[in-house]
Measured scan of single mutants.
Amino acid sequence: EDYYQILGVPRNASQKEIKKAYYQLAKKYHPDTNKDDPKAKEKFSQLAEAYEVLSDEVKRKQYDA
């Protein structure tokens, strides 16, 4: 799945936009606030993985290549 789609940001998003999108979605899908939703944990880990790659310039360049 596309990391940009997961975070809901365009491919040319700035680091600030990526961070903002991640924090909004992380708050929304955090397992502690969605105890009754088994998919929230999965969504949250996808968000974390996408953010880890896109927030790191080197990893992001490799991902975009």
Rank of each mutant, 00 (worst) to 15 (best):
Y4N: 00
R11W: 06
T33N: 12
E1K: 15
Q5C: 07
K41W: 15
K27I: 15
Y4F: 02
R60T: 01
L25I: 05
D2P: 03
R60F: 01
K27S: 12
K19L: 14
F44R: 06
L54R: 00
E49K: 15
K16P: 09
L25M: 12
A40L: 13
A26D: 03
S14Q: 07
Q15I: 13
R60E: 01
E57N: 06
E57Q: 07
E49G: 08
V9W: 00
D37T: 03
D37G: 03
Y23Q: 14
E42L: 09
A21F: 03
L7H: 01
L54D: 00
E1N: 15
D36Q: 06
V58K: 05
E52V: 06
K35N: 12
R11H: 11
I6N: 03
E1V: 13
Y51I: 04
K59F: 04
Y63N: 02
S14K: 08
N34P: 06
I18W: 01
H30L: 08
Y3T: 01
L47N: 02
K27C: 11
A13I: 03
L47R: 01
D56L: 02
L54H: 00
G8D: 07
D37S: 04
H30Y: 08
I6D: 02
H30A: 11
H30E: 08
E42K: 07
V53E: 03
Y4H: 02
N12H: 12
N34C: 08
S55F: 06
Q46L: 12
V53D: 01
E1W: 15
Y51Q: 02
P38V: 09
L25S: 05
K61H: 12
Y23D: 13
A13Q: 01
I18V: 05
Q5E: 10
I6M: 10
I6W: 06
P31R: 04
Y29H: 07
T33H: 13
Q15K: 11
V9T: 03
K41V: 10
L7M: 11
V58M: 11
K28Q: 12
Q62V: 09
Q62F: 08
D36F: 06
E57K: 07
E17L: 08
V58S: 10
K39D: 10
Y29I: 05
A13R: 00
K41F: 15
K61A: 14
F44Y: 14
L7A: 00
E49L: 14
K43I: 10
N34E: 07
K59D: 03
Y3P: 04
Y23C: 08
K19N: 15
A13N: 00
